[in-house]
């Protein structure tokens, strides 16, 4: 199982499609930086195929005033949780 890290918003960039194309059936996706826009209820549909395996970084949601807009299907994690996600995965890949 790999952890994929995405820092681009699906509203402005198609990089998320590359991340999804490279994901295996158990892989997880963590949204960081501008990528956390993808956790918004209006945009989370782009990640429908990885529901239940989608995470977003709390610091980046809060800094952008997006925490209240975060969809309930997204697991919100802090920096320590970010490290834990990398521990649980065999490897990580970054998409930017």
């Amino acid at each position: 199982m790999l952890l994929h890290i995405l820092n681009r918003s699906p509203a402005t960039s198609e990089v998320y499609r590359q991340a999804l194309a490279a994901m295996g059936p158990e892989d997880r996706l963590l949204l960081i930086e501008d990528g956390v826009q993808g956790a918004m209820s209006t945009l989370v549909g782009h990640f429908a195929e990885v529901t239940g395996r989608l995470y977003a970084l709390r610091d980046d949601l809060e800094a952008r005033g997006l925490i209240a807009h975060c969809d309930t299907t997204v697991a919100v994690t802090d920096m320590a949780g970010f490290v834990t996600l990398t521990e649980d995965a065999d490897r990580t890949l970054s998409w930017f």
Partner: peptide
């Protein structure tokens, strides 16, 4: 294709994007 790309990322010890 898409499935093969996921296999490639899983099978290499180091992947750089």
């Amino acid at each position: 294709g898409q499935g093969r790309i996921a296999e490639l990322t899983a099978s290499h010890p180091l992947v750089l994007t």
